[in-house]
Design a protein around this nucleic acid. Structure first.
Length: 296
DNA sequence: CGCCAGGGATCTT
DNA sequence: AAGATCCATGGC
């Protein structure tokens, strides 16, 4: 199965801080997904705009759900581009950037780990966790480790988590895993409900506040209107988007916002960008990181 | 040494 | 309801 690069740019999509367990080996990207290893091989011939997809153990046509190829991409780009010039320009520049659809548990643990942390370290910690507690898979002359299952996660001790590098987030992981195992949150409800109700439910998890909830809903639960606001997006709001989205507001955007400030700005911003706000956010985030010379 | 990293929980006013 | 503080860790 192949797809054109003008609707999917692998590099920007994988390197946009949404899905941490990918690594490039030679001319292929390898990703961790459930019990399988995903593989994308880049074209060797210049001008060839197709990718080749593979996986082991095989998952047929995995790229369709994972890169959300079923989304009406053109319509989404047109919709968010209409909202303001900033996003219009960025979507032109980085066309092909996609949102990926992750498995809930991996996504939840990944973003629990993201609080007050940076992307290289998030990757480092998640890889440690996988190496120690995931299933070993030998493929393509390489060794890979899957992400541990919920059941396995429940058996991991606090000190083992600390040894992976979770730091103070180890307690979040332990509590969150227990909450999910004990079915104290309703995963089906999160899948089926709208953004507001799903967010309320996912925020019952320890370590999941406003921002991380938005990430989980956007990257694992199809809530494409979620607009996660991290420190970089907040800087952008202070610098160039604030007046456009929150005109004449008495709200002062500080470097951190309180939960109520977050909700207020979130409401305004989702009103501004509409039902595909999550896509707008991902373009903005990627753009900021590119402009600031990301290191990862 | 301080500041920052895809923040959140908890305690204090 | 809004601030202040602490959280573990590494890069710069």
């Amino acid at each position: 199965m192949k797809s054109s690069r003008n609707i999917l740019n692998i590099h920007s999509t994988i390197n946009s801080g949404q899905y941490f367990l990918w690594e490039k080996i030679n001319n292929s990207w390898y990703g961790i997904y459930e019990d399988s290893i995903l593989k994308i091989t880049l074209p060797e011939i210049k001008g060839n705009l197709t990718y080749e997809y593979d996986s082991f153990p095989i998952i047929a046509n995995w790229q369709q759900p994972i890169f959300r190829l079923d989304d009406k991409y053109d319509e989404i780009i047109e919709d968010i581009s209409r909202r303001d010039k900033v996003v219009e320009n960025i979507t032109k520049k980085y066309i092909g950037l996609r949102i990926m659809r992750q498995k809930p548990i991996q996504c939840i643990i990944s973003f629990l780990c993201s609080s007050n942390n940076n992307i290289p370290r998030i990757r480092f910690i998640l890889r440690n966790l996988s190496r120690k507690f995931g299933k070993k898979i030998e493929w393509d002359n390489n060794t890979f480790y899957t992400f541990p299952t919920l059941k396995t996660l429940a058996t991991i001790s606090q000190s083992e988590l600390l040894h992976c590098g979770f730091g103070y987030r180890a307690e979040y992981v332990r509590k969150t895993v227990k909450t999910i195992i004990d079915q104290e949150i309703d995963m089906q409800l999160i899948k089926d409900s709208d953004y507001v109700k799903s967010k309320q439910e996912i925020m019952k998890l320890s370590g999941v506040g406003e921002k991380i909830a938005d990430c989980i809903l956007l990257f694992a639960f199809d809530k494409v209107e979620a607009f996660p606001m991290d420190t970089w997006i907040i800087k952008l709001l202070q610098k160039k988007l604030g007046q456009m989205i929150i005109p004449d507001s008495e709200l002062k955007i500080n470097d951190k916002f309180t939960p109520s400030q977050y909700r207020l700005v979130s409401n305004k911003i989702r009103d501004h960008y509409g039902k595909y706000s999550g896509y707008a956010q991902q373009f903005l985030y990627y753009s900021i990181r590119e402009e600031n010379g990301r290191r990862w």
